[in-house]
């Protein structure tokens, strides 16, 4: 079974035309991969569709802006994948 990270990495590679082999679980979507907020909307759209969830981007952004969270918590891909797993689990609960 394909891992959440692999699916997310494939989405990012295809959406942003980034070589798949440069995307690792440690990659920061913004700082390492250079994905800006507008491109991230396309990624969020693809993730929402692929996993049947709704990434809470507004809440995450607000938390970062308020200093309650760091971008690493949401945009390092291993962490993003974990968040997606949580959202999928919550949806199925």
């Amino acid at each position: 079974m394909t891992s959440t990270f692999d699916r997310v990495a494939t989405i990012i590679a295809e959406t942003c035309d980034i070589p798949r082999d440069t995307i690792t679980p440690e990659s920061h979507a913004i700082d390492d991969l250079g994905i800006d907020s507008l491109d991230f909307l396309d990624i969020a759209f693809a993730i929402d569709k692929a996993f049947g969830i709704k990434l809470p981007l507004e809440r995450w952004t607000q938390e970062v802006n308020d200093g309650k969270a760091t971008t690493e918590q949401y945009f390092v891909l291993s962490n993003l994948s974990a968040r997606i797993d949580e959202l999928v689990a919550a949806k199925g609960a």
Binding site: A44, D48, L57, R59
Partner: peptide, 9 residues
């Protein structure tokens, strides 16, 4: 097409 968090297509 899609209603996301803070964005819509």
């Amino acid at each position: 097409i899609h209603e996301g968090s803070g964005f819509t297509m």
